[in-house]
Amino acid sequence: MRHPLPPEIESLWTLFTAPVVWALHFLACYVTAAIFCAKPGLLGNDFFALRTLIAGITLLSLAMIVVAALLAWRQWGFGTGDPPHDDPTRRDRLLFQGYATLLLSGLSFVAVIFTALPAVFLTECLR
């Protein structure tokens, strides 16, 4: 049977996946809104369209974070081992990486929602 998840990557960088998604989401929201408000007409004049766009970026980002979390959960052995993961073995190192990545995915998920919230409440480019 083909596995739905991609093969495991062993690297330090996977730890940063979810926060990087947060950072890109943050930048996308900020830059889009800034250009929308500074250059009327360039991205349209309808603030509702801007909010929809931000909603779209947000959903996409959340989905990416969920995927990162799934991969992390797998690296953590689907929660079969409990922390602290402090044995001097490759297995415990992997479990630690998975667990830390999973935690960061959770934080990034919440932080993305935080960032998107203003678009729920604001309805114009007030200065």
């Binding site: 943050f26 929201c29 900020y30 809104a33 800034a34 408000c37 500074a38 932080a111 935080f114 960032t115 919230l117 203003p118 678009a119 409440f121 604001l122 480019c125 007030l126 200065r127």
Partner: peptide
């Protein structure tokens, strides 16, 4: 700055 910009940073 536009309030929506401020709000993103406030949220973060």
């Amino acid at each position: 700055l536009p309030q929506i910009s401020l709000a993103f940073f406030s949220a973060a």
